[in-house]
């Protein structure tokens, strides 16, 4: 039993880090890489606070062994706003989708993956997509508002610019 080297990218940055086999991705992100935006709420996969992107999919980092991410592209909440705030981040703040904030990174990461697959979700689809994340503060309403607003902004942004003549 010994540490092994995990080679992957985290928020676009190549990472080489020695990991214990029994350390979860959440452990490594928070303790070794100091990416503490990823939160641990229940540690059993039921609250969604620890959601990150692994190769573009929203996954629970508390139930993922770090070494299982060999070669993977990992994205955390800190990676969403490298140059400017992501529309989801802005919308969660502006719509009141974040109160105590502890579940917020998880909600945003899950919403982000959801909008990639479905850029124009209905309210019911948003509800379904977020049904593995628990928020104790907001009653979810303002979170749905935020996702709707961000989705609209993202669709408008991604409209191809007119071709120059």
């Amino acid at each position: 039993m010994s540490k092994q080297i995990l080679r992957c990218t985290v928020n676009g940055r190549a990472v080489e880090i020695a990991c214990e086999p029994w350390h979860t991705l959440a452990n490594v992100l928070r303790n070794d890489l100091n990416l503490t935006g990823t939160k641990i709420g229940c540690d059993m996969g039921t609250c969604g606070c620890c959601t990150v992107h692994i190769d573009g999919k929203a996954k629970l980092s508390c139930l993922t062994l770090a070494l299982e991410c060999q070669g993977a592209k990992i994205g955390t909440i800190e990676g969403l706003n490298e140059y400017e705030m992501h529309p989801l981040q802005k919308a969660f703040a502006e719509c009141g989708g974040s109160q105590c904030g502890y579940c917020t990174p998880g909600f945003i990461m899950k919403s982000c993956a959801m909008l990639k697959e479905n850029p124009e979700p209905t309210r019911e689809e948003i509800k379904a997509g977020l049904s593995g994340n628990l928020c104790r503060c907001t009653g979810f309403m303002k979170i749905y508002d935020a996702v709707e607003r961000a989705a609209t902004e993202m669709r408008e942004k991604s409209v191809p610019a007119p071709v120059k003549a």
């Binding site: 503490t36 935006g37 981040q89 703040a93 904030g101």
Partner: peptide, 23 residues
């Protein structure tokens, strides 16, 4: 007037520091 919570911008970016985040 509706105002976003002042600290929420730090919360949505993961910047907000909770006790277990400190070293």
């Amino acid at each position: 007037k509706p105002a976003p919570l002042k600290d929420s911008f730090k919360k949505v970016t993961g910047e907000a520091v909770y006790a277990d985040d400190m070293k």
